[in-house]
C-alpha cells in the first residue's frame, strides 16, 4: 500500500493494520525516517518536501511491485509525507511483512534504498544562511545499485 500525505502517521497503528488478520506473517520489518536538525555543520530550522503528484505514487507503486516480485512478502507499506516539516518530524515509513525475517529485512532495505533514488521528492532546508535545496548523495545511488545483483532471499 502506498500513501503520499502531508499529515503525520501513527507507527503503531500502521504496523498493526499491516499484519492484522494474516496469521501467515511471522515478522514485520520497518524503517522510519525523521527530519534531522543538522546538515553538515549547519543547523536546520525547518524543511519543505516538494513532490511530483502522480509520478510519486506511480514510482512508489513500481518500487513496491519490484519488492513483491523479488521476495515472498505478505504485505508492504510505504508512507511518505510532503509539505512543511520540522526537525524530529517523521518523513517516511517503510514496512514489509513476511513469513520469515530475512525476506522482510531485505525487502525493507531495498525499498528505502530505491525510494531515495527513484521517488520524485525534493527537500529544501531552511538554515541561518537561508533556504537551500538538498543535493543528492552519491552514497544513495551506490546503496541502490547494490540491489542490481539479483540475490533474492528465499
Amino acid at each position: 500500500m502506498i500513501k503520499v500525505q502531508s499529515q503525520d502517521f501513527d507507527i503503531g497503528a500502521e504496523l498493526a493494520a499491516l499484519s492484522h488478520g494474516d496469521t501467515t506473517i511471522g515478522g514485520v520489518t520497518s524503517f522510519v525516517g525523521y527530519v534531522r536538525d543538522l546538515a553538515g555543520d549547519e543547523s536546520v530550522s525547518a524543511m519543505t518536501l516538494e513532490h511530483y503528484p502522480g509520478m510519486t505514487e506511480k514510482m512508489l507503486g513500481d518500487i513496491e511491485a519490484r519488492a513483491q516480485a523479488r521476495w515472498p512478502l505478505a504485505a508492504t507499506l510505504i508512507i511518505h509525507r510532503y509539505g512543511d516539516l520540522k526537525p524530529g518530524d517523521r518523513i517516511v515509513l517503510v514496512a514489509c511483512a513476511s513469513a520469515h525475517r530475512q525476506a522482510s529485512f531485505e525487502a525493507c532495505n531495498f525499498l528505502i534504498d530505491w525510494l531515495k533514488t527513484e521517488a520524485p521528492f525534493w527537500k529544501q532546508e531552511r538554515t541561518a544562511a537561508g533556504p537551500r535545496w538538498v543535493e543528492s548523495r552519491a552514497t544513495d545511488a551506490t546503496a541502490a545499485q547494490r540491489w542490481q545483483t539479483p540475490k533474492p532471499a528465499k
Binding site: I91, V92, A119, D140
Partner: peptide, 29 residues
C-alpha cells in the same frame, strides 16, 4: 527528465499531448 511520469533519457521522443517534467536528482526518504 520524465515523459508521462516515466524517467527518460534525452534522446526520448516528445509529442503534442505529452506531460514532460524536469527536476534535479531526487532527495526524498
Amino acid at each position: 527528465a520524465a515523459v508521462n511520469q516515466s524517467y527518460v533519457q534525452l534522446d526520448h521522443p516528445v509529442s503534442e499531448g505529452d506531460e514532460i517534467a524536469f527536476f534535479p536528482p531526487v532527495t526524498g526518504g
